[in-house]
Nucleic acid binder design. Sequence first.
DNA 1: CACTGTTCCGCAAACGTTTTCATAATCGTC
DNA 2: GACGATTATGAAAACGTTTGCGGAACAGTG
Lengths: 334, 334
Amino acid sequence: MSADGTRASIRAVASLAGVSPSTVSRALNSPELVNAETRQRVLDCAERLGYQPNRAAQSLVLGRTRNVGLIVPDIANPFFAPFIKGVEAYFRDTEFAVFLADTDEDTATEVRLAEAMVERVDGLILCAPRMSGTRLSAVAAKTSVVLAYRTSRAAPSVLLDFQPGLDQAVAHVHALGHRRCAYLSGPANSWSNRQRRKFLGAACAERGIDLVDLGPYEPRFTGGYRAADEVVAAGVTAAFAYNDLVGLGVLSRLTERGVKVPGDLGIVGFDDIPMASMTNPPLTTVAMPVNALSRAAAATMHARLDPGVPKAPPLPPAAELATRLLIRGTTGPV
Amino acid sequence: MSADGTRASIRAVASLAGVSPSTVSRALNSPELVNAETRQRVLDCAERLGYQPNRAAQSLVLGRTRNVGLIVPDIANPFFAPFIKGVEAYFRDTEFAVFLADTDEDTATEVRLAEAMVERVDGLILCAPRMSGTRLSAVAAKTSVVLAYRTSRAAPSVLLDFQPGLDQAVAHVHALGHRRCAYLSGPANSWSNRQRRKFLGAACAERGIDLVDLGPYEPRFTGGYRAADEVVAAGVTAAFAYNDLVGLGVLSRLTERGVKVPGDLGIVGFDDIPMASMTNPPLTTVAMPVNALSRAAAATMHARLDPGVPKAPPLPPAAELATRLLIRGTTGPV
DNA sequence: CACTGTTCCGCAAACGTTTTCATAATCGTC
DNA sequence: GACGATTATGAAAACGTTTGCGGAACAGTG
């Protein structure tokens, strides 16, 4: 830490140590190339001056920023928080720092942010992107991208296996005697929504349960609130919500109306957000191992950016990415 | 977009436009210095080649990264999400990008992250930092920092005015006939906790309400869950929770025990997180204009970094930063 | 002692910008 | 029509690193 405000450059430590800048650089980056004792001297001097390499200069010559970008639809959505946390936690112990951006669930914003990010990062993790396939390819052409909750030919992706959880949910509901259920659909253009609907439909068909489609509803509390009345009108005995927020909205409106849950109507949510376990009754829901997923996304990206990384299992065993049913208080015998 | 994968440099557009790199740079950055028609030509060429200035090179020569850092205790805490969103939204329309980091509520992590950030940003927004004052000064010496939910001599800070909301809450509870209340304390070393306790104590004293201190509890749902039994044991008729999460925990445990809310016990939360309005009954709480606060933090930072910014109101009128009571379902006549 | 190999280190180029300084061209003025 | 002022542009230095290349010193070998 020099007394004058100006930060120490590599030259400063070089002259203090009585060597050339090249040697300082080597001492720092490729220790095996420099004599052990000069190296120690250099390190001491660097320490003494509080030398920190200028990242802009490094980036310029190396052509890499050592930053990665992360774009999610909505930070405030309790479903994405663990994803973000997982990615942040992963990169915390690496040389990479992460840029986070929130698209406000808006496709145009998403595209703009992706463009802006591209200039500042080596790689981009896109969480549940809404942009078109060709747009996606364009982005992937400029930087390496990893996708979560979405597939594409242009980039590798990490996904959850919805089937086990959904199977369990349907089996559970069937065992309780429900034969006519509703699916409360989320955003029509969302991959997650289509997946959920697909596996749900299959599982219901297999067990002879009638599945009626309602919605789409916005994937938030208010969406579920609105859905509730349509659900009772539909004459079903149980409802699968697109996600927990929707399920919670339904629950809230229903208790307000005096409809008994789970007595009159069963509710199954999706995601297992923290709030789901705090209501009364707590929400039966399909839990997603989001943490494993986000770490998988981060690890995949890391492996792409740094070939040196101990090629750790690029993807965790499929079992870890399987969803599963959490039976709580909103489902019971018809 | 050149056919070969390599990105176009300023030289490429210069030679295409038949001018020198200097002119291209000027055409892009100081249009008034270059002849209108050559400027147009340069712009066209740049467009045609898909030219994007290399940020590392710019940073190197300009000595600024045009990045700002944001460090919060916990992304998943619904209280911080709007803060993050506000900051992100503000900088979305500027030349700055934001680095987000989450400390997991851990002081050591916070310090490490701050150190790591310093190298990559022009400024750092610290939200409710836990680090020591001297640590804080050290960081502030290396980059410009703006504080939220914390004061320090070393850096400007943005704060909420807790008094109005707390006054209203106490007046409300008093009007309902409560004369003996509890404060469910949060983390002892937290500035927010001390502030809340202070104004609450003053307002209660003023109106002749007995205030008994309970806790500290961890500032989460489970903390409140644990607090609930101690609250009924304390023989009070209403409780002010450190925050909504705690309030919700209390509510949940109480309904579980069959204690009527608000009949037997009133609960007042703090923060107005989304979940607070979704429970049954919905939580009476003191709302914080977090969005205004986060934008104030962002604007303050922006003004520090870019003197050119239209010195907009560096801080919004105090009124906008005032908390206020939201009366919902968890308070009623004793 | 001459040769070949190693080990260690310095020189200088390169990365892609911005900006100072100098110069050429144009203009207005008397 | 000469002259200072103004405008438009280019050449080159600078920002702080990394790294290819080559040289010096030294060790080992015949």
